[in-house]
């Protein structure tokens, strides 16, 4: 088994009176695809947000490459999310006022890259995953499947070590969903990135190396070996 890249240990998180996580733990190894499964409201997305440093747990620790995220400043965590993490969500993630090319280049621009450099890199990625013809279109002018492919390009443009995908195929039909998950998995395998894949679709989870089940804010340990 390869090295542990990301770990969450005994994570506890409440939002007001509601306990979203009550002792969830999971590991992600290098170049590993881990599916996070569980019913709606079980805490899957909160677990993803904690692992990605988007929200900080009330208790427990998240470490990335051995560094505790709680020991970082907000600025350091933001930089980490921009460079080492990529994100693909269910929908509404592309900025409607920007072209698809500008959307893909956005993480690089936010990291301080010059427009020309950022857009050249973005174009490379759009060609690689065959969405280059959409470069000048706005998100509102492309289909749901195309929009998700553009989002995948944007998640990969910085060369992240972990891609956090929260229901990436949730708004797509079976055919388009299949294309998007294949694209995501294939490019992650090629680049050596790991994926934390939150999904309620078993056919999508079947693209993972293993699964973690979340129920009532806790991760279930399943005894059966794969």
């Amino acid at each position: 088994m390869s090295e542990v890249l990301l770990s969450g240990t005994d994570l506890i998180k409440s939002f007001g009176p509601s306990d979203a996580l009550c002792g969830a733990s999971m590991l992600v190894h290098e170049n590993e695809i881990v599916a996070v499964l569980g019913p709606s409201g079980s805490g899957k997305s909160t677990l993803l947000h904690c692992l990605a440093g988007i929200v900080m747990p009330d208790n427990g620790a998240v470490t990335f490459q051995g560094r505790d995220l709680a020991g970082m400043t907000d600025k350091e965590r933001s930089a980490l999310r921009r460079t080492d993490f990529g994100f693909v969500f269910q929908f509404g993630q592309l900025v409607p006022e920007l072209s698809c090319l500008e959307n893909v280049a956005l993480p690089l621009r936010l990291g301080g890259a010059r427009r020309k450099v950022a857009e050249a890199k973005a174009r490379e990625w759009m060609e690689r995953i065959e969405v280059a013809p959409l470069a000048d279109k706005r998100p509102g002018e492309v289909s749901g499947g195309q929009s998700q492919r553009v989002a995948v390009a944007r998640a990969l443009v910085t060369g992240p070590k972990v891609i956090f995908a929260d229901e990436p195929t949730g708004a797509l039909d079976s055919f388009n969903g299949e294309q998007v998950i294949r694209l995501l998995v294939d490019t992650a395998r090629d680049t050596g990135a790991s994926i934390v894949l939150v999904t309620h679709e078993a056919r999508v989870a079947a693209y993972s190396d293993r699964e973690v089940v979340v129920r009532d804010g806790k991760t279930r340990q399943v005894a059966l070996a794969h």
Binding site: L37, A202, A205, A206, E211, V213, R220, V222, A223, L224, H226
Partner: peptide, 8 residues
């Protein structure tokens, strides 16, 4: 849980 794992 065991069945889910076998199915997956």
């Amino acid at each position: 849980d065991t069945q889910r794992s076998a199915h997956l």
